[in-house]
Design a protein around this nucleic acid. Structure first.
Length: 643
RNA sequence: GCCGGUGUAGCUCAGGUGGUUAGAGCGACGGUCUCAUAAUCCGUAGGUCGCAGGUUCGACUCCUGCCGCCGGCACCA
């Protein structure tokens, strides 16, 4: 049972296939912010994160470095831990899929599901690449392996299956009864649409993988990804009365696993379901998707080293609407930093505290404050708390900055420096002004603690407090709590203005270093799928592939497909080859006619959308980028062989 | 192809159930104060509200079609 005063939230557990980058940091920073906010509400907030360490990719990465999987994972898991430490994130539990208690949990969950009749042994049939030891879930017989391009083989093996098909109605009821279960609504709608079209049973074990948690009593079976990974949410707080989780914070790419599979597993095991799943959007880098193949992944620590972790936290939560995709760029980051943090909050703190030192001997003056500022502060507080509760961070921050602007304006209107010179009756006005500014600053600072904890605490000390800001509760946000007579601490700038050009250069330089360091950690062959030593092929093997120069005679879009073009390619044979190619995203049919291309001529024909494809067009492409057709600088004769 | 979302100032975005001169923040430009981090504050410039029709006395706001972008499914990988 869960204790009423607690709030348990999780991030996904991160796959040890990659080193931590800004995307990981984004989720974890948001989670840390929520955790602190819940703490401010007086709840015992517990944040769990961790690492997903099983599977073939990890096994292979370890092997490439001559390490055991466990040794390899120890290094990467520590890298994640260290990352969160460096960023000052308050991680309460760090669960690894390789922990003993987790293995027992996965096995228990499995047994509970099996005992209730939701698990059965069946035949898995699918495509498998022997070379890469990889299951290609959606591939059809004859399809190439996405990793190495070799043909996949149809394998049949004995697996355990989970009866996901039994849960369609229960899941739909769940989404219907608890509209907040999946947020934002667009994700919810997608999940409902997905479940409505029917669910297939899920293979949850494999026999060909070794690096994983064994099925009880049958060690040749090992649990496959999601059954293992999702269960860490239970393992992380085992025996702590914290389950069910109040919030699973995830990225939108793993919504299905959390919103469909996970509740089904739990229902099957008769365990309570998490309260809410919130999927945030992707962080783009200067409007492009961050991906390994583009080489535009950014890491968090270089940013925090130059502008501070709080600058990054503020930027991510202010600039990006939580739940939608957002864009990171160094320019925008520094822009936000200077305009909002340095000129806005930092400057307000600096001017307010300095004036109290100069005009009031460093003690909070005696006053109730100006009523319209008190009102504005009260309104802003209510609004910001409401937005925080809804995880609408950008709106909350926007509102808080409205209050900062109001106080700045008020200071200029009152001109305390003039009041101080005037003396006499102006004294009371001066004190009211400075009390208002200081009290507003106190409230603003406390409200911002979940988002910028380190800087908020600095301002907090400067306001003269001796207890940590983490002890502030929402009721303390009421106007008038700042005690007159309280002696301020020494003033020092919290967000010094940044030279845009210099700081960007510095961040870029550090980023390069950090990238190199992480690459070394991972072993070179992991991030860039370069050919490995044992993947060399003989010339004979190569010559089996018959590549020919051809010219496109006809090209047309394929009905009912976004990606396919149907081409007629002349390679000097009696009849042009009919070739179906997935290049519609990059090429208009008419632009291809007459173009010289390279094709693989001895590929087994196959049917795509009812059209026979008698070959394959050679194109260069990244995982997620548009393909670029191979072409020739010099005139290449039709039918010529490539070798 | 089906479903959903979206397209408003240079940038990021607000604009319940249609109604006087379409807003904010940042950026730019001009000015001001001097407590403060060349900060603050005041002001100015800048928008055919994706395009084309339609409904209406009147549409950014409703309807239809088209175009662009994003996502889900299918498909592909």
């Amino acid at each position: 049972m869960k204790s009423g005063n607690s709030y348990y939230l999780t991030t996904p557990i991160y796959y040890t296939n990659a080193a931590p980058h800004l995307g990981h940091a984004y989720t974890t920073i948001a989670a840390d912010t929520i955790r602190r906010f819940k703490g401010m509400q007086g709840l015992n907030a517990v944040l769990a994160t961790g690492t997903d360490e099983h599977g073939v990719n990890v096994e292979r990465a370890a092997q490439a470095q001559g390490k055991t999987p466990q040794e390899y994972c120890d290094v990467i898991a520590e890298e994640f831990r260290e990352q969160w430490r460096t960023l000052g994130l308050a991680i309460d539990r760090f669960e690894r899929t390789t922990s003993d208690r987790h293995a027992r949990n996965v096995q228990d969950l499995f047994l509970r599901c099996r005992d209730r009749g939701y698990v059965y042994k069946g035949q898995y049939q699918g495509q498998y690449c022997i070379f890469d030891n990889l299951y290609v879930n959606e591939a059809k017989p004859g399809d190439p392996c996405p990793e190495c391009g070799r043909p996949t083989e149809t394998v049949t093996e004995e697996n355990y299956f989970f009866r996901l098909s039994k849960f369609q109605d229960k899941l739909l009821d769940l989404y219907n009864d608890r509209p907040d279960f999946i947020q934002p609504d667009t994700r919810r709608n997608e999940v409902i649409a997905f479940v409505k079209q029917g669910l297939q049973d899920l293979s949850i074990t494999r026999t060909s993988i070794k690096w994983g948690i064994p099925v009880p009593g049958e060690p040749q079976h090992v649990f496959y990804v999601w059954f293992d990974a999702l269960t860490t949410y239970l393992s992380a707080v085992q025996g702590e009365n914290l389950w069910p989780a109040d919030l699973h914070l995830i990225g939108k790419e793993i919504v299905r696993f959390h919103a469909v599979y996970w509740p089904a597993f739990l229902m099957a095991a008769d365990l309570p379901l998490p309260k809410k799943i919130f999927a945030h959007g992707w962080l783009l880098f200067e409007n492009d998707k961050m991906s390994k193949s583009r080489g535009n992944i950014v890491r968090a620590t270089p940013i925090s080293k130059v502008l501070g972790a709080d600058a990054l936290r503020y930027f991510l939560l202010r600039e990006v609407v939580f739940g939608q995709d957002g864009s990171f760029s160094y320019d925008a980051l520094v822009g936000r930093y200077n305009s909002d943090l340095a000129n806005g909050l930092g400057n307000l703190a600096s001017r307010t505290l300095t004036m109290i030192h100069q005009y009031c001997g460093g003690a909070v003056p005696e006053s109730g404050g100006a009523s319209h500022i008190a009102e504005a502060a009260t309104k802003t507080t209510a609004m910001a708390l409401d937005y925080f509760e809804k995880l609408d961070f950008s709106r909350a921050l926007e509102g808080i900055w409205g209050l900062i602007a109001a106080v700045d304006k008020f200071i200029v209107e009152r001109a305390p420096w003039k009041l101080a010179r005037a003396g006499g009756e102006a004294r009371q006005q001066l004190e009211e002004t400075l009390y208002s500014a200081a009290e507003a600053l106190r409230i603003i600072t406390a409200l911002l603690y979940p988002v910028i904890p380190e800087s908020a605490e600095k301002i907090w000390w400067q306001l003269g407090y001796t207890h940590p800001i983490s002890e502030v509760r929402t009721r303390d946000l009421n106007w008038g709590r700042l005690a007159p007579g309280q002696l301020l601490g020494a003033v020092s700038g919290v967000f010094p203005r940044a030279d845009a050009k210099a700081s960007i250069e510095r961040m870029r330089a550090l980023e390069t270093e950090e990238y190199a360091r992480q690459q070394a950690l991972l072993g070179k062959s992991v991030p860039v799928p370069a050919p490995r030593a044992d993947s060399k092929i003989s010339i004979d093997e190569f010559l089996k592939i018959d590549m020919r120069v051809g010219v496109v005679k006809e090209a047309a879009a394929v009905k009912g497909s976004d990606k396919l073009l149907h081409l007629q390619v002349d390679i000097g044979e009696a009849k042009p080859r009919s070739i179906v190619a997935g290049i519609a995203g990059a090429y208009k049919p008419e632009a291809l006619i007459g173009r010289k291309v390279a094709i693989v001529a001895n590929l087994q024909p196959r049917k795509l959308k009812g059209l026979e494809s008698q070959g394959m067009i050679i194109a260069a492409s990244l995982d997620d980028g548009p393909p670029a057709l191979v072409s020739f600088m010099e005139d290449a004769p039709i039918g010529a062989r490539l070798r």
